[in-house]
Structures are given as structure tokens and as C-alpha cells.
Design a protein around this nucleic acid. Structure first.
Length: 506
RNA sequence: GACCUGGUAGCUCAGCUGGUAGAGCAACGCCCUUUUAAGGCGUGGGCCCUGGGUUCGAAUCCCAGCCAGGUCACCA
């Protein structure tokens, strides 16, 4: 028998004994919690009885608390145990003389990892730790596993759960055992609600659009396929929010946003997960400048709300972002002049000259983006907007009337990485149809990420969409940026993982 | 997809140039009524990722695979 199994059996045995004592942990429904562990310590002076107080007086100052046993030191007829409520923990002092026989017997049947409800009064131990002198207790749940609770002193931790694979596969253990995991989760949640509040406060309407779509559009990515039985239809999981949100703009709702999960059938890396959370917002009658200001405001406001400062992750979001013209930036960093990027042959020649492979390139837009990525991106450490993207790689962005071949589109970069993508939306249905048709040609030439035709969307545009600015931000990457996380999996609670055990037949 | 690194007790890890498996924590038993990485004495615990191969003998060497981490590529 494995040790895990024998520990389980042992603990099931203790569970049975607890039931015999009339202390079935699973039978309890609720427990009063007067204060959190943090509050008990913070408000110690006010809550603790005098050291000279009578037993009666101490009882009167009794508080109720509950949590998980995270450390246990048995000393015969007394014991110390740390009880954690997730955020913080407090030490309990359990003394045989001051508990009923059943309670003391039950206490001895408790294991690390069990939940327990207690009442007691606050006191300071000989070694100076604010603690709870337990006057009654009740087991509230039994842990049938041996939890990898580490040991801790002065903020330093020993043992515990450090294996990254285990942390991702069993996130609940990570949350119990590693304080940073909890911090990450809380920060993510705070950031998302700050983002939501930002848009709510500005009069944007939060909406929810379909995840199941007949055509997955709005981005260049391969979708996940699934099947809808009732209509016998092949449907796709959405890869972006864009086209439905703009349908709402067509419906004369002037400001909308959505924070939602999208799915892209791609590989996994420290910056990619097949499902991720996307924020997109659209504002009628707004242009690129408005979008840039909005991005600046968003990052500044969220940083200040969540971290109390606009200086976060090594970036000062209190300052306006730099603004760079895309072709100018390429010329400055690579020496390639804008004229060289006028036709495919000279663009390829320029690319070859600077030592980049050209085999896979078949349009100027692709080359320009490659040059941007290679020469410019790494230098964009401070928050920067790069403006003016090629038309081939921007099938939903309005043409720049002053610059053939380019669109009214920008991307924001921070610490050398793309963080947002925004443009003036195409509201000319004829133009949009031509762009989609061009994408269809790309698709026929083998680009399986080219945008599909979406007649229904064009029908909406044909009914009239006001000039509109739109922007998208990957929430996960935003959280990474603001929390300094190096890996997407750190800030995704449940990242995509392979099946742990190989299928028997393969 | 390529390359590098790793997979040994519940957890964290050691185990060198092959010789039949080790520590700390956790667990179990006993002692201990202010301890705190509590302490003392004692005990148990292993498909050494999987499958092949080399060898008298493999956790260790070789090959293949699985899983993970990392770097790169892909990802407008």
C-alpha cells in the first residue's frame, strides 16, 4: 500500500473516531467568525482581556475564529497550533485542563490541514506572540491528504510546495502553501475590478457577446471547433470580441466594453495560453488620439487604484506615453528607409541586407511587422505607442487617407512587449468587404489564420456605423506587466496542462 | 516544432567513475501544560517517470517515449 493510501486510511480512521465523539466535522454547517486572523492581531489591545482578569472576565472577552491547522506543536497535555484563514494566521494555545474531555480527545485526532472552529481569548505568550487561548473547539473538516505545508520563520519558508508542475496542476495546494500564489490571485482580481470600474465610471456599457460563433473573426488565429447538436452545426469558439462589439456600436450604443475569455488554437509558452482574457472597448465618434489617451488613463488609474502609485513594474504610467511613427522607428533602428518598403522586391532586398530570412514573406505588411518586431520592439522599454500599421496586416482598421498602404492603427508597447492594439474602425462596408475578400485570397494561398468573410457583420456595417475607435488589451499580459510576473502561468489560476498520465493505448 | 535541463518517500532534495536506496520535514508510537523551523527517544514508508538495450549486476550508462521547466521558433 502506498503511503498516501495509508495516510488516507489513517485519517479516515480518525474521522470515524471523531464521529464517535459526536464531533463529526462534516456534519457542521456554519461557524461564527468574529474577526479575521489579521484583525485579531491588529486590534489585539482592544480585544484582549487584562492579564490579571478573572476567568469570568476572560470568557467575556472570548472571540470566535476558524481556519485551517497549518502548524502543530504538541506538548503532552497542551499544544500550540497555527490556524490560518488564508490571509493570515494566528497561534492557538490548547490546554487539556481548559477543554472538555471530548474536545481534548477531538483535538488529538486533528491533523495538519484540518479546519477547526475555535473560541478563545487573546493573550501574549512568553515568547511574545499574540495568540488565542482556546476555550472551546470543533473540528470543521478533515484533510485526508498530507498537505505539503512548509515550515516558516521570519518570513523564510522551508520545504513546502515548490515544484511548478504540481503548483499548476493542484493550484489549491499552491494557494494553501504559498503566500505568493494568493497574492497573485488577489492582485489579478483587483486589477480586473479596477479595469471594470474605470470603464463603468466613464459611461461604458459592459456587455457579453457569444463565445460560440459560426465564424470566428476579429483576429488572425485558428479557432477551436465544436459541434452544436440541436442544429447539427459546426461552431467555433471565439478568437476575439471585436465584431460583435462593433455590431453593438452599429446599434447606437456609443460606448461598450467586454472583458471575456477568447480561445486560440495555438501553442503554449510563457506568454501564451490557448484561452485567455481579453478586454476590448469601442467608442463611437472617437479617434486614435482618444484611444491613446484612454490607454494612458487606464494604466495610470489601475496602477494607482491597485498599487497606490502610478510607478509600477519599473514603468511610470503617470507620464504620457511616447509616440512613434512606425516607419520612422524602423528607419532609426535598422537604417531601412521608408522608400525601400514601397514594393515587395526592394523590401525583401532590404530585409536580406539586414540579415533577416525572407523566404516566408509574401507581402510588404508582413515584412514591415517583422522589421518592427526585430529592430524596434526590444527598445520600447518605456510605454510607447507605435502608429501607422500596414494595410495587409490590419484588415479591420481604417485606411489612412494621407498614406496609401497604411492604416489608422497603433500598438502600445511596454518593456519591449506589445500590450495593446487599437485602431479607427472601418465603417465603410465596401472597404470592409474588399478587405475580407483580400483575406480570403490569403486563405486560399494557405494562410489558415486569414480572416474569414462575415456577411452578417458587413450587413451591420451597411446599416451604418459611426466613426469609431476601438482598442484591445490582453488582461493576462496586463496583469503580468503590473505584477512583474515572468510567466503567464503564474497569473493564470489554471493554465492549460497536458494530461498527466499517458493514455494506455497510443 | 528545435535545443537544453529535470523526473528518486506525501513534500524538499542527496545518491560521483555501475555493486541491491539515503537525509530533513511530514507520518506513526512513547515522553513533555507558554512552544514556534519546539525538543527527546523509537518506528514505518520507494514500480528510483515508462518501455527497450548494454552488463554477472542499472536509480546510475545507451536508445525511444511520456510529463514538466527553460531558451528559441511560431503567435499581424
Amino acid at each position: 500500500m502506498s503511503e498516501e493510501q495509508s495516510i488516507r486510511d489513517l485519517r479516515l480512521g480518525k474521522l470515524a473516531q471523531l464521529r464517535e465523539l459526536g464531533m463529526d466535522p462534516y456534519a457542521v454547517e456554519r461557524w461564527d467568525i468574529d474577526y479575521s486572523a489579521a484583525d485579531l492581531k491588529k486590534r489585539f489591545d482592544e480585544l484582549a482581556p487584562n492579564t490579571e482578569a478573572s476567568d469570568e472576565e476572560k470568557k467575556a472577552k472570548s472571540v470566535s475564529f476558524a481556519g485551517r491547522l497549518v502548524a502543530l506543536r504538541l506538548m503532552g497535555k497542551a499544544a500550540f497550533a497555527h490556524i490560518g484563514d488564508g490571509d493570515d494566521k494566528i497561534q492557538g494555545y490548547f490546554k487539556r485542563d481548559e477543554l472538555t474531555e471530548a474536545e481534548w480527545d477531538a483535538f488529538k485526532l486533528l491533523d495538519l490541514g484540518d479546519h477547526v472552529g475555535v473560541t478563545g481569548y487573546l493573550f501574549v505568550t512568553r515568547t511574545g506572540e499574540q495568540s488565542l487561548h482556546i476555550t472551546s473547539l470543533k473540528p470543521l473538516s478533515k484533510s485526508l491528504h498530507n498537505l505539503p505545508l512548509g515550515k516558516e520563520k521570519d518570513g523564510q519558508q522551508w520545504y513546502g510546495l515548490t515544484d511548478q508542475e504540481q503548483r499548476y496542476r493542484h493550484r489549491h495546494l499552491d494557494l494553501v502553501c504559498n503566500h505568493e500564489a494568493r497574492e497573485m490571485l488577489l492582485n489579478r482580481s483587483r486589477i480586473v475590478s479596477a479595469v471594470r470600474r474605470f470603464f463603468d465610471d466613464r459611461g461604458y456599457l459592459e456587455v457579453e457577446t457569444p463565445l460560440l460563433q459560426l465564424e470566428a473573426g476579429g483576429a488572425a488565429a485558428r479557432p477551436f471547433l465544436t459541434h452544436y447538436n440541436a442544429y447539427d452545426l459546426e461552431v467555433k469558439l471565439r478568437i476575439s470580441l471585436e465584431l460583435y462589439l462593433k455590431r453593438i456600436i452599429c446599434g447606437d450604443v456609443q460606448k461598450v466594453y467586454e472583458i471575456g475569455r477568447v480561445f486560440r488554437n495555438e501553442g503554449v509558452s510563457n506568454r501564451h495560453n490557448p484561452e485567455f482574457t481579453l478586454l476590448e472597448w469601442y467608442e463611437a465618434y472617437a479617434n486614435l488620439e482618444d484611444m491613446m489617451t484612454c490607454v494612458e488613463d487606464l494604466f495610470r488609474t489601475v496602477s494607482e487604484k491597485v498599487f497606490g502609485t502610478s510607478n509600477v513594474g519599473g514603468c511610470d504610467f503617470g507620464k504620457p506615453w511616447h509616440r512613434l511613427d512606425l516607419l520612422t522607428a524602423i528607419e532609426e533602428r535598422s537604417g531601412i528607409k521608408p522608400e525601400e518598403l514601397n514594393d515587395l522586391d526592394s523590401a525583401k532586398a532590404a530585409m536580406k541586407r539586414v540579415g533577416l530570412p525572407t523566404e516566408k514573406e509574401n507581402n510588404i505588411g508582413g515584412i514591415i511587422e517583422k522589421l518592427l518586431e526585430h529592430f524596434v520592439e526590444p527598445h520600447l522599454q518605456e510605454p510607447t505607442f507605435v502608429v501607422g500599421y500596414p494595410i495587409e496586416t490590419s484588415p479591420l482598421a481604417k485606411k489612412d487617407p494621407n498614406r496609401p498602404g497604411f492604416t489608422r492603427r497603433f500598438e502600445g508597447y511596454v518593456l519591449g512587449r506589445e500590450i495593446c492594439n487599437a485602431f479607427s474602425e472601418i465603417n465603410d462596408p465596401i472597404d470592409q468587404r474588399e478587405r475580407f475578400e483580400h483575406q480570403l485570397e490569403e486563405r486560399e494561398q494557405g494562410d489558415d489564420e486569414a480572416h474569414p468573410m462575415d456577411e452578417d457583420y458587413i450587413y451591420a456595417l451597411e446599416s451604418g456605423m459611426p466613426p469609431t475607435g476601438g482598442c484591445g488589451i490582453g488582461i493576462d499580459r496586463m496583469v503580468m506587466l503590473l505584477t512583474g510576473a515572468e510567466h503567464l502561468r503564474e497569473i493564470l489560476l489554471f493554465p492549460m496542462m497536458r494530461r498527466e498520465h499517458r493514455d494506455s493505448e497510443e
